[in-house]
């Protein structure tokens, strides 16, 4: 109980499940980053940029996990919604941008 903000308080473990969902998403970005890197065989250095962006998204998710988990635990406690508007929009935009960049690389 030394960390009241991260101590689970919900028998349904909603915050934990949500954090794990972010973790799976993080790993999916790592996999996509690895695919981009492998693509460098044919496309050259330009794909390294895509690799770096995908990896940066994964790292950003990783470093912000604790904040989102605390936000979710606090929301369950109040109880009140905890819509992560910024995280959601940034994530969607990142995937769209990576896809667009992939199209550009194909057209090169």
């Amino acid at each position: 109980m030394s960390h009241p903000h991260i101590h689970p308080n919900d028998p349904g473990l909603q915050p934990e499940r949500t954090t794990l969902a972010w973790n799976r998403t993080l790993m999916a970005f790592v996999i996509v980053a690895a695919f981009f890197l492998r693509w460098g065989n044919q496309q050259g250095v330009v794909v390294v940029g895509l690799f770096a962006v995908a990896l940066a998204v994964a790292l950003t998710i990783w470093t912000t996990q604790r904040n989102r988990y605390r936000q979710s635990v606090r929301a369950m406690r109040q109880p009140q919604g905890s819509p992560k508007v910024g995280s959601a929009i940034a994530l969607g935009a990142a995937v769209v941008l990576l896809g667009a960049a992939g199209l550009v690389v194909i057209s090169l």
Binding site: G12, Q14, P15, R17, T18, A21, W22, R24, T25, A28, F29, I31, V32, F35, S72, A75, M76, Q78, P79, Q80, G81, S82, P83, K84, A88, L91, G92, V95, L98, G99, G102
Partner: peptide, 24 residues
């Protein structure tokens, strides 16, 4: 209810992973 917001968040993340699978 905060559970609904968290459920929506997980569903969104599942769709994002689906999108990433298509990119991959």
């Amino acid at each position: 209810d905060p559970r609904f917001t968290l459920a929506n968040e997980r569903t969104f993340l599942a769709w994002i992973r689906t999108a990433l699978a298509f990119l991959a």
